Amino acid sequence: MSDSNMSRALVVGAQTAEAVELSAGSAFRLLADASDTWGALGANRLTMSSGADGAGPHYHTLSSEAFYVLGGAMEFLLGDRLTTVAEGDFIVVPPRVPHAFGAAAGSTAEVLVVMTPGVERFGYFRHLGRVARGQESRDSLSAVQERYDVHFVSSAAWQAARTSVTR
């Protein structure tokens, strides 16, 4: 991208952001991919239904991931620590730190997620939508983890915490 394109600000209207529907009323709003921001960042807005899972345990090698909770309450796995956060709370996860998140039991959640530097990830979110619609298997995510810098790990603590969430 030329330097002249970098002098233009990106504006994404709320109604023009691509929506990717997930299961049970959860959805992504795709705000900016790396190619939209000269590689600086990627951003999305995630709405989760009551007690819904967000992302299972994973880490990123290239980017830090920041979460600003716009509404509701969320559970996070940060390394080996579980924590609950609420509206107005802010979390930054550095590269290589395993993390996971979902709406807290009995709560919906809305969160702004920003990754920096940016990695092209809109394709990943669209893939998640196909998984939610049954068009792809959950196992198909393993084949794209390198491309989207989403490296899955297991966590007994997260599994135990999420099985106790009532939906």
Rank of each mutant, 00 (worst) to 15 (best):
A156N: 10
T108A: 11
R121I: 01
E146H: 14
E136F: 03
A157H: 01
S154N: 14
F101Y: 07
H151G: 13
R121G: 00
V144L: 08
Q135C: 05
R130I: 06
E120H: 06
F122R: 05
S137G: 15
S137Q: 08
A143I: 12
F125G: 12
V111C: 04
A109S: 05
A100C: 11
V114E: 01
A157Q: 09
A109T: 01
Q135Y: 12
Y124Q: 07
E110S: 13
A157K: 08
M115F: 03
L128A: 07
Q145Y: 10
A156W: 12
V119G: 02
H151R: 13
S155R: 08
S107W: 10
T116D: 14
V111F: 01
A103S: 02
S154P: 07
G123M: 09
V153K: 05
G118E: 00
V150L: 13
P117A: 08
G129K: 02
V153F: 00
P117I: 00
A104D: 10
G102C: 04
S107V: 03
A100N: 03
A105N: 11
V114H: 07
A104S: 15
S140K: 13
Q145D: 11
R130V: 10
Q145K: 14
L141H: 10
F101C: 06
D139A: 15
V111L: 03
R121H: 10
A100S: 09
R147L: 08
A103N: 03
H151E: 07
F122H: 02
R133W: 05
V114P: 00
G118Q: 02
V144C: 12
S154I: 13
S140M: 10
T116Q: 13
A103Y: 00
H127F: 08
